[in-house]
Design a binder for these strands. Structure first.
Length: 862
RNA sequence: GCCGGGAUGGUGGAAUUGGUAGACGCGCCGGACUCAAAAUCCGGUGCCAGCAAUGGCGUGAGGGUUCAAGUCCCUCUCCCGGCACCA
């Protein structure tokens, strides 16, 4: 054994051993229980970034932990290979998205291999491969036939200069990112997945997800947004049509002072035909992007439509306004406005001087309440509402329901905020939608025999719309039903479709004939899913929806795809810059900066290694190209080794929190590995022995052995249950700190030293697998670490006869005592009162109360 | 704007079920080894007062519940994630 730790050879050797033995390639024939452990599908951006490294390290630690705990573990990987960045790269450097993407995958795969992951590479897939998307197209046709997919108009961001549809992120302050033109909302036909048909199940089945973070379930619940309300018809006046509103507050119906409708509402269109000013206003409403964040923060504007409708309860004539704050795709596209009891209506009514009528009496004495100052939105007892006066919410809901239903002008309605999922994208680099438009037969799904609809891989988009639409070879085709000349659909699918089922395809990626086969029923559901919190809503909701749709086709078992979910935080790093005279900033990589700190550890100055001159500190930010603070994993792994990088990532923060990258922290992790190496080296110099089983130990040895088995228990719980790897590592560090202070004299002492080192190597092996593999070979030659079982706690080592208890007086710490476990509560109380420091605080005072928490503390209240 | 989350020493974080705040690491200070440096090892390190024993203060701000609050409740500030075409 070498005296010093050198990572290169160790890591290469372990990696080739794992590769050659195919130890991480698994199948369904194992007698062990299955464990499906997986990271979210990475986008092949070109270079591995620290977010990927973190993601894969977490699943790798769990996969290795479960493997040693007797599970048949699968840990697959694939590539989310369609999407916008490839088109952007194509526009920039004239390289075809396909070529760019496949090159990126090759680069990133090589980088991942250096990390020593326990991945089953035989299952690797890329969503841009026809072998993958042909099955997706087939699934699309199945959903299309079963009515889950339909076509309707949807609103997109339209760049009138580039004549192209823009993604929300390509709209900056209401303008196109390339042209700078004001973006307008445009209606185009699109395909929709009827996810709302599953709204109730998606909501109810959240209760099955005990292994999900509560916050993610809350976000999904709110996103689905189930609400109970009423649809109420308002009859039109002066010969115009009426309209229907949806409201969750029918109790305020008598307080309606106007009705507001969306600019896309049919009635608004109708009114605009006779009203030039209104038409102009509605055109102005079309300016700007379609994102909800943009709509919600835009200033509320509106215009009177000239129309009136009648309040069905009291017959009052109220004006109809067209307002930009009403969403056409929620409810009915029309709302009844009650300014006295709704924030948004209040703001709008105040701006346009519309009436406010109080119909709810504040429940408590509320001296602040003034309808001209703010809206009162709580529930309460009705006033100014005629026969409904004095009723509470439940009573008036029932009374109004009865009246409206008997008059057939309203009904109780459950409404969801969730909208159907528009999947059409007017883009080239995506999965073609397998539909053929025929003049005679309409929209025809492509038959299975004709799949896949291949995406030509040589096209290069130029930013002026979808090149597929200009490609006659792609567009021109024959109708599969009547054989007439027909036109192929040129829109491609949202990439969220690709990522909604890839985890099922991993189980049978080699099956050319079928989308999924019996093997999916062995592996699904995913037992442990790990990915960024930014996917808490959309990706996870779409994948859940897909799973249910696949279940209804008989392709998978169960209701939910992901049993346990862990949402990881982002990776951040320090930023450094110099300000240019024109105000712009040049950003310097933290790798190229030297830092000087004062005696308290505060940053005094930072200098650029290139020229030795000072730079400004810009705080800690998410790693990004724009701030030049991305840390490339390659040089880190080359310099310190993958084990150091993995250890740092797992130690610096718990997985859900943001992770701050610091070079000194990486060095600290490397120092710990070298220290462990030296300890094994020194132990080995005296010869390896059998690990401790029984026999006399010195008191300090006995104490160390107790700590060892406490550590085994803690690490097992931290890794397997809490998934808090940082505290597991800290506990191992503490154990080694204690180890280094103990004298391992005698035969039993040597055996204890062997026991501790073997245990540490096993405990650490999921996190730093390469160095642990090498150390294991030194401690137990001719055996394989990966074949070892996880450690079992020796309960007898945990037995201690004394515990430390703290004594508080009035909740303040005043002393500590060692207490034999056999003592009674009364005996402990006496001991506590006898403590000299405690006496100073209780002397001459009556003891009002005395609390004893067993094995923890005594609180004396005086 | 709406939904979700976060804030603890110089710093990343720990405190698992309301029970010793600051584990472990980094940084910094001091020491050993060395011609010297690096590496390594040993000790110290929340703030204030004190030679010390010890005491006072202290978990974003303000209030509350409790024998006891970083942890529970209310109000607020700032930061982060998502908002349906970034992935």
């Amino acid at each position: 054994m070498q005296e010093n730790y050198v990572h290169n050879n160790i890591e290469k050797k372990a990696q080739s051993k794992w590769r050659d033995s195919k130890i991480f390639e698994v199948n369904e024939s194992s007698p062990k229980p299955k464990m499906y452990c997986m990271s979210m599908l990475p986008y092949p951006s070109g270079k591995l970034h620290m977010g990927h490294v973190r993601n894969y390290t977490i699943t790798d630690v769990l996969a290795r932990f479960y493997k040693m705990n007797g599970y048949n573990v699968v840990h697959p990987i694939g590539w989310d290979a369609f999407g916008l960045p490839a088109e952007n790269a194509a526009m920039k450097s004239k390289v075809a998205p396909a070529e760019w993407t496949y090159q990126n995958i090759a680069n990133m795969k090589a980088q991942l291999e250096n990390m020593g992951l326990s991945i089953d590479w035989a299952r690797e897939l890329a969503t841009c491969s026809p072998d993958y998307y042909r099955h997706q197209q087939w699934f699309f046709t199945q959903l299309y036939k079963s009515g889950i997919i339909y076509r309707k108009n949807g609103t997109v961001n339209w760049d009138p200069v580039d004549q192209t549809v823009l993604a929300n992120e390509q709209v900056i302050d209401g303008r196109g990112w390339r042209s700078g033109a004001t973006v307008i909302k445009k209606e185009i036909p699109m395909y929709y997945f009827a996810i709302t048909k599953y709204a109730e199940q998606l909501l109810a089945d959240l209760d099955q997800l005990g292994g999900w973070p509560e916050q993610v379930k809350v976000m999904q619940r709110n996103w689905i947004g189930k609400s109970l309300g009423m649809e109420v018809e308002f009859a039109g006046c002066d010969g115009f049509d009426g309209l229907t509103v949806f409201t969750t507050r029918p109790d305020t119906l008598m307080g309606v002072t106007y009705v507001a409708i969306s600019a896309e509402h049919p009635l608004a269109e109708e009114a605009a035909n006779h009203n030039a000013a209104l038409a102009k206003f509605m055109y102005e409403c079309k300016a700007g992007g379609v994102s909800e964040a943009e709509l919600a923060t835009a200033e509320k504007v509106g215009m009177f439509s000239g129309l009136y409708v009648t309040n069905p309860l009291n017959g009052e004539k109220v004006p109809v306004w067209v307002a930009n704050y009403v969403l056409m795709n929620y409810g009915t596209g029309a709302v009844m406005a009650v300014p006295a009891h709704d924030e948004r209506d209040f703001e709008f009514a105040t701006k346009y001087n519309l009436a406010k009528k109080i119909v709810i009496k504040p429940q408590k004495e509320d001296s602040n309440y003034d309808p001209e100052v703010r809206a009162y939105t709580d529930y309460g007892v009705l006033v100014n509402s005629g026969k409904f006066d004095g009723m509470n919410f439940e009573q008036v809901f029932a009374a109004i329901e009865e009246e409206l239903t008997s008059r057939k002008i309203g009904q109780v309605k459950v409404n969801y905020r969730l909208r159907d999922w528009g999947i059409s994208r007017q883009r080239y680099w995506g999965c073609p939608i397998p539909i053929i438009h025929c003049e005679h037969c309409g929209d025809v799904a492509v038959p299975k025999a004709d799949l896949p609809v291949r995406l030509p891989e040589e096209l290069i988009p130029d930013g002026s719309g979808n090149p597929l639409a200009k490609n006659p070879d792609f567009v021109n085709c024959r109708c599969p039903q009547c054989g007439a000349e027909a036109r192929r659909e040129t829109d491609t699918m949202d990439t969220f479709v690709d990522s909604s089922w890839y985890f099922l395809r991993y189980t049978c990626a080699d099956n050319q004939e079928q989308m999924l086969d019996e093997r999916v029923k062995y592996w699904a559901p995913v037992d442990q899913y790990v990915g960024g919190i930014e996917h808490a809503i959309l990706h996870l909701l779409y994948a859940r929806f897909f799973y249910k749709a696949l279940r209804d086709l008989g392709l998978v078992n169960g209701d939910e795809p992901f049993k346990n979910l862990l949402t990881q935080g982002m990776v951040l790093a320090e930023t450094f810059y110099r300000q240019n005279p024109n105000g712009s900033k040049d950003w310097y990589s933290p790798m190229d900066i030297d830092v000087v700190k004062d005696a308290k550890g505060n940053l005094l100055r930072a200098t650029y290694k290139g020229d030795g001159r000072e730079v400004e500190y810009g705080g800690i930010e998410k790693m990004s190209k724009s701030k030049n603070n991305g840390i490339d994993p390659d040089p880190i792994i080359n310099r310190f080794g993958a084990d150091t990088a993995r250890l740092f990532i797992m130690f610096a923060a718990p997985p859900e929190l943001t992770l701050e990258w610091t070079e000194s922290g990486v060095e600290g992790s490397n120092r710990f590995i070298r220290r462990l190496w030296r300890m094994v080296f020194e132990h080995q110099q005296y010869g390896i022995v059998e690990r401790y089983k029984s026999g006399e130990l010195t008191p300090e040895q006995k104490k160390l052995r107790t700590q060892l088995h406490q550590t085994i228990a803690k690490v097992t719980n931290d890794m397997g249950v809490r998934k808090q790897f940082n505290t597991a590592i800290a506990a191992i560090m503490e154990l080694l700190n204690s180890y280094s202070k103990v004298a391992f004299t005698g035969e039993n002492g040597r055996a204890l030293s062997q026991e501790v080192l073997e245990a540490v190597v096993v405990l650490l092996s999921p996190i730093t697998p390469h160095v642990c593999d090498a150390l294991w070979n030194e401690l137990r030659p001719d055996t394989e670490l990966l074949e070892q079982a996880w450690l079992v706690v020796d309960e007898s080592a945990l037995d201690v006869d004394e515990v430390e208890m703290v004594i508080q007086v009035n909740g303040k710490l005043r002393g500590k005592i060692m207490v034999a476990k056999s003592l009674t509560k009364d005996e402990i109380e006496v001991m506590a009162k006898e403590n000299t420091n405690v006496q100073k605080f209780i002397e001459g005072q009556a003891i009002k109360k005395l609390v004893v928490v067993p094995n923890k503390l005594i609180n004396i209240v005086v």
